[in-house]
């Protein structure tokens, strides 16, 4: 039988120094934080982090010294608009960046998903984005002759996403109202590992009713990790909402090296069970109120 269940440590064991790793979700929504925390606990280094719609995964991996290069369009914690660890890393000049428009990022993943070398776009024209290395212009071969940006494919070695349910074969359900761009991350990647709230028998996925929540077909999924509250402190609505109190603690941990070390010791050095206990436990997270935007 096809059984793709594994642990977060099994996932990290398949990652290598220098890989291009894409992380799904959006800002403070559905980030695969249990897998990110496992990378923080590992010896991995020199990663190219591909996180177009970035949140705490960017700052946390930068603070832990895992990132050589960042491909992104923004980094924010929504209610705390500026990601403080990302700022520290940028202002120290400790990471290379390739900064994109959000739509260009989407296009780059889509090109990779379609196995195309590039997709044309107007986004970036007239800006400093396309003065960075890696872009070329392309002329429409049709009558209009328009000059467009050739947005190169963003191919990923590995994509990490967080979903709500899966079966052991890797059929996944993403139950949020907004599927975000997780499908494109998966399709742009050689391998995808998914942390999920719960692994259930296939029948319990109730596919007939939940079809629109099934973003990709299972051959694209290499492994599924059962990680309850694995997106914390980001949200995995409808199962649970963002933990603003913990996001604040994370923000405060960027104040100094001591503050970051205290955060690591307090929250990251143990395993996920210890992490969940340290942030108040399952019942507390499940009861977090819906935020306003």
């Amino acid at each position: 039988m096809l059984d793709k269940r594994m642990s977060a440590a099994d996932v990290v064991a398949q990652l290598q120094d220098g890989m291009r790793i894409g992380i799904g979700g959006w800002a403070t929504r559905r980030k695969p934080m249990a897998l990110v925390r496992e990378i923080v606990r590992s010896d991995l280094k020199d990663l190219t982090l591909v996180a177009g719609y970035g949140g705490p995964e960017i700052g946390m991996l930068c603070a832990a010294g895992k990132v050589k290069k960042l491909i992104f369009a923004f980094a924010t914690l929504d209610h705390f608009p500026l990601e403080p660890h990302f700022r520290n890393a940028r202002q120290a000049g400790s990471i290379e960046v390739w900064e994109l428009d959000e739509g260009m990022f989407h296009w780059g993943l889509r090109a990779a998903a379609m196995k195309l070398p590039f997709l044309p776009t107007r986004a970036g024209i007239g800006t400093d984005i396309i003065t960075q290395p890696g872009f070329k212009m392309v002329r429409s071969p049709f009558e209009d002759g328009e000059e467009l940006v050739a947005m190169p494919a963003i191919r990923l070695d590995v994509a990490l996403i967080h979903a709500h349910r899966s079966d052991e074969r890797g059929n996944i359900l993403t139950l949020s109202n907004d599927p975000l761009f997780d499908e494109l991350y998966v399709r742009a990647a050689e391998k995808t590992f998914v942390s999920v709230e719960k692994i259930v028998p296939t029948a319990q996925l109730d596919m007939a009713r939940n079809a629109r929540f099934n973003l990709v077909e299972r051959p694209l999924i290499t492994g599924v990790v059962e990680a309850p509250y694995g997106a914390h402190p980001t949200s995995a609505a409808p199962d649970y909402e963002i933990d603003l109190k913990h996001v604040k603690a994370y923000v405060d941990s960027a104040a100094s090296d001591d503050a970051w070390n205290a955060y690591r010791t307090g929250y990251l050095d143990g395993d996920e069970e210890a992490y969940l206990a340290s942030v108040g436990g399952a019942v507390t997270i499940a009861a977090l109120p819906k935020p306003v935007y």
Binding site: F74, T76, D101, E102, G103
Partner: peptide, 9 residues
């Protein structure tokens, strides 16, 4: 600051 977000497009 934030990054370019969707401003270019």
């Amino acid at each position: 600051m934030l990054g370019a977000r969707g401003f270019p497009g």
